[in-house]
């Protein structure tokens, strides 16, 4: 059969490997970054400061989910889902409440004293250290499994090698899509969502036209906290729960928020995906894709065993360079966010 011959020539296995590694991997990490970056971009747009504890808020959300799941380990069984996912709304509510309380205790007094934005940033760094200390005190410094059972793995045959998606990854994609659509309708249709956009555009004007800034600020923290908890929980479900995630995740999240344009939730989603895909593309070993071409190349061209743009150890460099590139060429981000 000529078709079969053609198929065997095409590097279908390698291509599926590429999709597994880069496309699915990028979607996973991009979704997590997006869930974090939505909160960061809303806080940057409405409260006007870079919220450093966001990574620790994600970890705290995952920790709440871990506690819930260990208290009620069999809640998820009737649905065939991990208990931590079924109980995630509880963790989201707890993290949202924590975010509102943190604002009341630490940021609101500074806001009332009308300090410079950079002092707010510094105070947020203080809060970051406190959260880090508490999380490590209660959760320990090791890694833990959020879901003790084996993960369900879906294999999609693709002629040769299978496309592989695990259940937590599928849940992550679905949740991110639902959250983004819901946020879109909230921001464009509801009164509160419109008020939030008004405050982000011009806080003074919004205030004199009768919008309660306090309500807007509280809603911002609730959304940011809930989405951060979801992102942290879903990441921990996919990989493991680690208490010292914060620095490794806060930089890509900031990069995603700034790339997307500060104050634009959709921009944050695009930015998150951009950063996630760049990361997986940059550390991907391209020689896997090129190796099947070896028989067709002349003798002296030898494909090295490893061609990656960035070694895996330097993954942290990628979001940083995206950030620097955006700050140099287009400080407003893709979607023209605010710069002041």
């Amino acid at each position: 059969m000529p078709e079969a011959g053609l198929l065997s020539v095409l590097p279908i296995n390698e291509f599926v490997f590429f999709i597994n590694k880069v496309v699915i991997g990028g979607l996973i990490i991009g979704s997590v970054y997006a869930l974090g970056a939505i909160g960061v971009t809303l806080i940057l747009g409405i409260l006007r400061f870079a919220h450093f504890p966001h990574g620790d808020m994600m970890t705290a959300g995952a920790f709440f989910a871990l506690v819930c799941a260990s208290l009620a380990p069999h809640v998820g069984d009737p649905f065939g889902l991990p208990s931590a996912f079924v109980l995630m709304p509880v963790a989201m509510a707890a993290t949202a409440a924590m975010a509102v309380w943190l604002d009341k205790a630490f940021y609101a007094p500074l806001r009332r004293a009308n300090v410079k934005p950079v002092v707010m940033v510094m105070s947020s760094v203080g809060v970051m250290l406190m959260l880090q200390g508490l999380i490590r005190l209660f959760a320990g410094t090791g890694t833990r499994q959020l879901d003790p059972g084996p993960k369900d793995i879906y294999r999609i045959p693709a002629g040769g090698r299978d496309l592989i998606v695990t259940q937590p990854q599928l849940l992550l994609f679905i949740f991110t899509a639902v959250a983004v659509v819901a946020l879109h309708f909230f921001l464009t249709r509801s009164r509160m969502g419109k008020a939030m956009r008004a405050v982000a555009d011009n806080a003074e004007l919004a205030r004199v036209s009768g919008i309660s800034i306090d309500h807007v600020v509280r809603t911002t923290w609730i959304i940011a906290g809930a989405l951060a908890a979801a992102g942290g929980t879903l990441l921990a479900l996919d990989v493991t729960f680690k208490a010292d995630l914060s620095f490794n995740i806060i930089l890509p999240v900031f990069a995603a928020a700034i790339v997307g344009g500060v104050g634009h939730p959709y921009g944050a989603v695009v930015g998150g995906m951009l950063v996630g895909f760049t990361e997986t593309l940059a550390v991907f070993n391209w020689s896997v894709l090129l190796r099947p071409l070896q028989p067709y190349l002349p003798e002296f061209v030898e494909i090295p065993s490893k061609i990656a743009f960035v070694p895996t150890e330097y993954k942290i460099v990628i979001p940083f360079f995206i950030l620097i590139a955006v700050l140099i060429w287009r400080p407003t981000g893709i979607f023209k966010g605010r710069t002041n």
Partner: peptide
């Protein structure tokens, strides 16, 4: 090791309290 994490907490608390 966990006990030493309390020092992280204290540093953060000091920063926020002094600023306020």
């Amino acid at each position: 090791t966990r006990a030493l994490q309390m020092r992280v907490f204290i540093i953060g608390l000091t920063i926020t309290l002094v600023l306020r």
